[in-house]
Design a protein around this nucleic acid. Structure first.
Ligand SMILES: [Zn+2]
Ligand SMILES: [Zn+2]
Ligand SMILES: [Zn+2]
Ligand SMILES: [Zn+2]
Lengths: 132, 132
DNA sequence: TCGCACACGTTATAGCATAACGCAATTGAT
DNA sequence: ATCAATTGCGTTATGCTATAACGTGTGCGA
């Protein structure tokens, strides 16, 4: 998918996520954008929906939060699964892709005749810095 | 972890999940147990917390729901990741384990010195029957 | 000019999860 | 036996996450 021009609200939400050092919940984003005129959750969720659709933002299901894609240039997401390591201390997220894992999972799904549409791979724990 | 004797509430919740043909949300479980005296969400969540701790129930992060473990005997969870294929049509869930995927992910995490604690691998799509 | 698609704003509501309090039963030292 | 700690339980209230439903305005092609 080629990313179209972002609207004002989409740009605001995307910028907040890009500047953040950890994933943000929709309501946290809302709070950060009140000064720019945001008033209701839907303004955030609608922007997020589009950003997710364009693939420039990811949703972390296990913590109900959102991050900007770490690999905006490589169009890596069209041909592989995305995985996340999430530090529960500092909140840092490492996004990574592993074709071996992809193929293995895809093979298994194929063997079950299961048609995959969305995937979630999230590992929670402690990053090198916080594992101390 | 060896599973201790379940309490009354834990047993009720576990039985509901065991009989269910698809994952259930905590509030759905609550509704199914009103006749047995359940009144508040916390009664369900507290039972679920224990059942999760004992490993006899899994939480599906991507759909805020819970399922009974499909492999209660094999103590498979202590030495490997658990993955789920979730059909968005019929709700059916297939729980599976793949050591190849485990090792590959674990190796990657090790290379990053990331200490994994919990993992979520969920594939949403359509099962063989529903893919039609 | 009409119709449509789309972004947007607002209010209300639905759905998911936990905090904080108190009580009762159990257990395990002292 | 007694006390303290733990655990399960029930209740009320609250907070967090997400969407429904309605209406407005703008741009654009038929
Ligand atoms: Zn990405
Ligand atoms: Zn960290
Ligand atoms: Zn299991
Ligand atoms: Zn199905």
């Amino acid at each position: 998918m080629t990313t179209p021009m972002l609207t004002k609200n989409q740009t605001l939400v995307f910028d907040v996520l890009t500047r953040a050092e950890a994933p943000l919940s929709a309501y946290t984003i809302l709070d950060k954008l009140r000064d720019q005129g945001f008033r209701a959750p839907l303004q955030v969720y609608r922007a997020l929906d589009k950003l997710l659709e364009y693939g420039v933002v990811h949703r972390l299901e296990s913590i109900n939060s959102f991050v900007a894609c770490a690999h905006p240039d490589e169009n890596c997401h069209s041909h592989g699964l995305v995985a996340f390591a999430i530090c529960e201390s500092c909140g840092q997220v490492i996004e990574f892709h592993d074709h071996e894992v992809d193929h293995r999972l895809m093979d298994w799904l194929k063997s079950q005749k299961f048609k995959a549409e969305k995937s979630t791979i999230e590992i929670r724990g402690h990053c090198a810095k916080c594992a101390a």
